[in-house]
């Protein structure tokens, strides 16, 4: 544990016995921690009521450092686990932290179906456009022409815009910002927590170690400058051609349109069929009859 005369105001939310963390110097995940805790403090959500779920990848290690119940699951499956966790006890606030590979490559199916159901989860998708944990391989969001250890000649694919995917699949709140917009990120997470339904906040984050090194953006500053140069708003994007949009990071609130939440809809059916409610059955496994 690191002793500090002037501890960070968010240190109380961390499992300090696990520090130092495993993130590389200059990793964008530090800003994710800050924006997340800031959002929780701004929101009506009680930190004690939060459970976190993650998959596999760098950002999926975030919940392991947070002093709440945390489920670090298999690659791509975080949202499926979170679906069960939330359905078992819908009184808890469930936050999923996932990455671009985790959420949209191996876990793409789980993402779109959770969005379709509009289950009340808040998903923070930390998108660094690369596989960091395994050493810099290409991802479904890597920009066309970008380099990775498995794209030595540059990526040929059109990348996913995760926010568009989530919106199209039915998420009721979707926002996208970069780590260079921490206030907007915090506000979006706060709105996501408040939304009773599936919320996805995509945060473009730097990976200087792999993305930067492979793509002539070796320092965190170079990467953040690159984000700033290429960031446009949804409003600006409206009047731009596909060619002009290539490589741009389109930020803003993609959708904020509450609709019937999955578990509430199920419970409405239950209420017509039974006097016993799922709330009566919270922690049913511990009951002897």
């Amino acid at each position: 544990m690191i002793e500090n005369e002037h501890p960070h105001k968010f240190i109380k939310y961390l499992r300090t016995e696990r520090l130092p963390h495993l993130f590389c110097p200059g990793c964008g995940n530090g800003i994710i921690f800050n924006t997340l805790f800031n959002a929780i403090e701004m929101s009506d959500v009680d930190f004690e009521n939060i459970s976190m779920v993650s998959g596999i990848g760098c950002s999926s290690r975030i919940p392991g450092y947070v002093k709440c119940d945390s489920l670090h699951t298999t690659h791509g499956r975080a949202i499926a686990f979170a679906t069960g966790l939330k359905m078992a006890n819908s009184k808890q606030d469930v936050i999923v932290v996932t990455g671009d590979g985790d959420a949209t490559s191996i876990g793409g199916n789980h993402l779109i179906h959770a969005a379709r159901r509009n289950i009340d989860l808040t998903v923070i998708c930390v998108n660094n456009d690369i596989y960091g944990m395994t050493g810099g391989q290409i991802s479904p969001t890597s920009p066309k022409g970008s380099y990775a250890t498995t794209a030595p000649y540059g990526s040929t694919d059109k990348p996913f815009n995760i926010a568009e995917v989530a919106k199209a699949a039915g998420a009721s709140y979707v926002a996208k910002y970069t780590v260079a917009q921490p206030i907007q990120v915090s506000n979006a997470i706060k709105e996501g927590l408040a939304n009773k339904g599936f919320s996805l906040i995509e945060v473009i984050a730097q990976c200087p170690t792999y993305y930067g090194r492979k793509n002539k953006l070796k320092t965190p500053k170079a990467m953040i400058d690159w984000f700033k140069e290429n960031t446009i708003s949804l409003k600006q994007a409206e009047d731009m051609t596909d060619e002009e949009l290539e490589g741009k990071i389109i930020t803003g609130v993609y959708i904020n349109k509450p609709r019937a939440e999955f578990i509430e809809s199920l419970d409405a059916i239950s209420a017509q069929n039974s006097d016993i409610t799922p709330e009566d059955n919270i922690n049913k496994a511990y009951m002897g009859d």
Binding site: T73, T74, A80, T83, A88, H110, K284, A285
Partner: peptide, 20 residues
């Protein structure tokens, strides 16, 4: 669920959520 991978993920999540 959307597939059986997700089905087992969900039941594990629900087990930690306090259900059989």
């Amino acid at each position: 669920m959307e597939d059986e991978i997700a089905a087992v993920g969900a039941i594990i999540g629900a087990s930690w959520g306090g259900q059989k």
